[in-house]
Design a protein around this nucleic acid. Structure first.
Lengths: 338, 338
DNA sequence: CTGAAAGCGCTAACAT
DNA sequence: ATGTTAGCGCTTTCAG
């Protein structure tokens, strides 16, 4: 039960070689004769030796560790990012160290924690940062890629999708369907995604000479979205169409409308979401939505981060990837409108 | 852009104290005068100094890191575990290091990786281990807690729920409803949860003098469960009731039955799931299921692991927590049966 | 209370 | 190709 602590010295002694020969034997591209390597490996096996990664990190100054920062994993989008990114980095000998930002959000303490931990890069999942905070991490010279949020600061890389365009399409589409009272179910008010989707949406409506009839906030969460939907549809003149800033909220609205207000979707109300989570395609929901290119976002973000970690001088990039409207059955068909 | 590398020596020099005074100033329970500590803190702030956690780990022999091992985060149950466990450990100055087991599953390489990384504990999420593998980690003297799986090995701690009892209830309940052709939609065949739920289910049916009419495997995954459901209900004598080994598969079955086979749930087919994920309670699904006490499982597992990490001599425990039947609308009411 | 000195386990020159 | 030596940045005796 006691912690074994077999060091390279122990192995060297047993194998009858120097300690550095042991070290070399465990380095992929070192110059060791097959004979010594074999002696070392045999001795290692016998003693159950494993190189101590921490000692290695101290001297090579590379922890082979990437920090992942997020507020929550409730949205499957982010657990998906986490899983894919982790597999990607793991394949290159890196590992992810988790940091959850406190709900309330004194994000600064987490930042401090991250810097102490000597990670070589930071992956931010949907973290809303101020320019000051972005500058703070940047000053430390540690590569950062932020996924699904933008911040008005050039020094760190950002990968997001075209939220404005997605919102614009949603607005125009609902208006083109002949809806007259079109509402917006917003996400976290401070988030760039919320703001951009809303801005695009309003512009889309405007381009069809319509305005937004009502706005409520669901904070990207299921329960909050249910509440917001109840408020929207308890009004004297309830909406006849709804754009939600993500799928989870769109689905929440659909549940509330169908089962509490006895409204039919899309007959009485059209709904559009954002993300295209797997569940959106389930036949029961068949949610019309704006697809974010999740896999591509993850791929770009991880590659970008890896590149910055590997090479000293790489310029930050701001990537905005295209979204795709997914027409399903939660919105009226054009022919339906009178 | 260059990596800053401010060391305690730099701070000491600026503050006009010794390097060890700096170290002491950053140790919570060290004996330093307020005066020196202040000098040190001021100098630290000026230089942007952060103690190097890696160097500290090397000497204290404690990485303050816990490994989390999982196959996938597709099931929200596990992202939930991850988030809650992470917050718990973070509050005590520990962080989680992610390890994803390869899909095919040469789990041994991951084990080696984990040992090298000098973590102080391991949290296994739904990892199916052989006795040999369990013994291997145990031999290293590193505390392990395995959540939602059992393995026939006493040396490591295990936290699961009463799968046998849950399956038993499902079997008896479906039989008591008057169903005649009751099928099982299984999870990963090798997993202890699958085996225990199935065993309990068959026993429950048996206690009502019924047998299981058909078994198909859905591997705990949505798509696989859809396929399995199609096979089950394409048979000449399709089931009139179904017990799925988790909610995700139960919901998949519900989608397929309603939208591909035009069957009504529960009128034509009763369905019972396992887990009680949030989605199960959505009115559209209203899935009758066996609730696992997720929060309690997480709490017990993290506390157990923390205890073992903190104290050398703690006995492994095998916890089996009680499950709760959640009667919703995917199963017939008793009065319905003729 | 504070500084000097000795490593933690390893890698990376530098000799040999 | 191998051994010797000098640290990586920090914590922790040990004197003073």
């Amino acid at each position: 039960m006691k912690r074994k602590s077999v060091t390279s010295r122990d192995v060297a002694q047993l194998a009858g070689v120097s300690q550095s020969a042991v070290s070399r034997s465990f380095s992929p591209n070192a110059k060791v004769s097959e004979k010594t390597r074999k002696k070392v490996m045999d001795a290692s096996r016998e003693l159950g030796y494993r190189p101590n990664t921490i000692a290695r990190s101290l001297i090579t100054r590379s922890s082979r560790t990437i920090a992942v920062v997020t507020y929550s994993l409730e949205n499957p989008f982010y657990s998906s990012v986490l899983e894919q990114a982790s597999r990607f980095f793991q394949a290159q000998g890196y590992h992810l160290l988790m940091f959850f930002a406190p709900p309330g959000g004194s994000f600064d303490a987490v930042l401090d924690d991250i810097i102490r931990s000597q990670v070589e890069g930071v992956l931010m999942l949907a973290i809303t940062m101020t320019q000051r905070q972005a500058g703070l991490v940047d000053d430390f010279g540690i590569p950062v890629v932020i996924i699904n949020r933008t911040v008005d600061y050039a020094g760190i890389s950002q990968v997001s999708s075209d939220n404005v365009q997605g919102g614009y399409w949603a607005g125009r589409h609902l208006a083109s369907l002949g809806h007259q009272r079109i509402a917006y179910l917003g996400g976290l008010p401070d988030s760039s995604t919320h703001q951009q989707r809303e801005a695009g949406f309003l512009e889309g409506l405007h381009s069809m000479e319509q305005a937004c009839s009502a706005i409520e906030i669901g904070n990207y969460r299921y329960e909050d979205a249910c509440e917001a939907t109840r408020r929207l549809f308890s009004a004297p003149m309830p909406p006849d169409a709804l754009f939600a800033a993500n799928d989870l909220m769109a689905l929440a609205a659909m549940e509330v409308l169908r089962h509490e207000f006895n409204l039919r979707v899309p007959r009485d109300v059209s709904i559009i979401g954002f993300d295209d989570v797997p569940m959106a395609a389930w036949p029961s929901h068949s949610l019309t939505t704006v697809r974010q290119p999740v896999d591509l976002m993850i791929q770009k973000a991880t590659e970008l981060l890896m590149k910055q970690v590997a090479q000293e001088e790489t310029q930050p990039e701001h990537l905005i990837l295209p979204v795709t409207p997914m027409l399903r059955k939660s919105t009226r068909h054009h022919a339906d409108h009178n």
